[in-house]
Design a protein around this nucleic acid. Structure first.
Lengths: 265, 265
DNA sequence: CTTGTGCGGA
DNA sequence: TCCGCACAAG
């Protein structure tokens, strides 16, 4: 028996918007510690990892660990039937092949439930080692999204972005059909709100190249958090992390391009 | 001679948006009592009935009853040329085969008139008996529209919706490609505004099945009224009614599906 | 946050 | 033509 009650149902809606373009089918794993998902994108290049800790739910019951395979487009469609202020409850029996999403309006005058068949999905749960990163950039998530969008418009999403971190700041560079572009963000903690700050924790300067189109996909998570952190080390996948308030995180992992080829499909 | 002056021209625009998808050609009937229309949809399954009482017009002159056949798409196109705050006047001579729509801007600084040919349309005016309904649900029209839209998104519009009324509330159910859905709305009169209330007048519980795509078409009338009433009895067509303030109503009639087949083209 | 509107894409 | 998305207003 599994029963998860999430008062901020809109979080779940945003999570699905943030991953459904990258991953079509995935297992949601539920255990006493929380609700999580780990999946490669369909071209097996990027990895998405979601964690919603059990203590972030208003009610969290999970008698035994369950892995529930779902088509994320279907889940997204169901969640579109929930209003942003609805309370969402996810229910499943231990041996059932279906899951039920229940949406309650705040005043309890409308209750909707949707039952969906589960799928069998080959699990590929990878252990992701905790690493020390040479540089960690934290910046407003909207600013990061804007940069990725702007750089994409210069060339097209088939191009690469070079992210270079020095003590002074972080530089995003690309080269495209029209020309080349460099956007530099400097450290900046003298800001009204802490989430507007751009901070850089740098042990060593680092400069890595990534496929821009993945970065753009990652920014679908922007509504989840006002800031994003980008953790980089040479020869390690970059981690783009959006914290989910009081509950966990949504992380994207992407391996750097080894050479400095600018184009790649 | 016929001359109808409607200060709230936007009403007429909304009416046409609400019926033109269902009905392509229809007779507008004008008599001293008002301006009305009754027509079957093109597949002869649903019936649309409009009434705009003469006292709702600023000026209403109708020397003798007239039935004016029009292509509703053409009328809709003409009305798109009127601004929402324009005053609309409909004119026709008794023996003419044309009708004129005149649009005046509120400050009288712009006057447009459009003449359109009338058509001969075989009239099929049905007497609709006043019936006692086992259950009448009144709810916010936007909520009803949202429910129909959500249920359609689960399967597709080819599916059916089961509407069941009990004392506690009204339940809308469907079953689709992705899964099954139930949405329950409870009675709820402790609301700030009366039009936000959901009320149920129930003599007997009733449960009927309808083609979802027609329900969805009916919700095109949502802009006409903040609330909708759904009147049901076993073996009678459901009546979905949108009141038009101070003037009349727009009603849709739809026969229930006899069997419980879920799919139907 | 919801609603209405304008725009672009399918 | 219709639908979904993005923007702006209440």
């Amino acid at each position: 028996m599994l029963e998860l009650r999430l008062v901020q149902g809109t979080l779940l809606k945003k999570v699905l918007e943030a991953i459904k373009d990258l991953v079509t089918d995935a297992n949601f794993d539920c255990s006493t510690s929380g609700f999580s998902l780990q999946a490669m994108d369909s071209s097996h290049v990027a990895l998405v990892a979601l964690l919603l800790r059990s203590d972030g739910f208003e009610h969290f019951r999970c008698d035994r660990a369950l892995s529930m395979g779902m088509n994320l487009n279907h889940v997204s469609k169901l969640l579109k039937c929930a209003s942003n202020d609805d309370i969402i409850t996810i229910k499943a029996d231990d041996d059932a092949d279906t899951v039920t999403f229940m949406f309650e309006s705040p005043r309890q005058d409308k209750i909707a439930d949707f039952e969906m068949k589960l799928m069998d999905i080959k699990s590929e749960h990878l252990g992701i080692p905790e690493a020390e990163y040479q540089s960690i950039v934290k910046m407003p998530s909207q600013e990061f999204a804007r940069i990725c969008k702007d750089l994409s418009s210069i060339g097209d999403t088939a191009f690469s972005v070079v992210i270079s971190v020095t003590k002074e700041g972080v530089k995003f560079s690309t080269r495209g059909d029209i020309g080349s572009a460099n956007i530099v963000c400097r450290q900046n903690s003298t800001v009204d709100k802490p989430e507007d700050a751009t901070t850089i924790q740098m042990k060593e300067p680092v400069s890595l190249t990534f496929a821009l189109r993945y970065m753009n996909s990652f920014t679908k998570a922007t509504p989840l958090s006002s800031s994003v952190s980008i953790s980089m080390s040479s020869d390690l996948p970059v981690v783009v992390e959006y914290k989910i308030a009081e509950m966990g995180y949504l992380r994207y992992y992407l391996a750097p391009k080894i050479e400095d080829d600018e184009e790649q499909s």
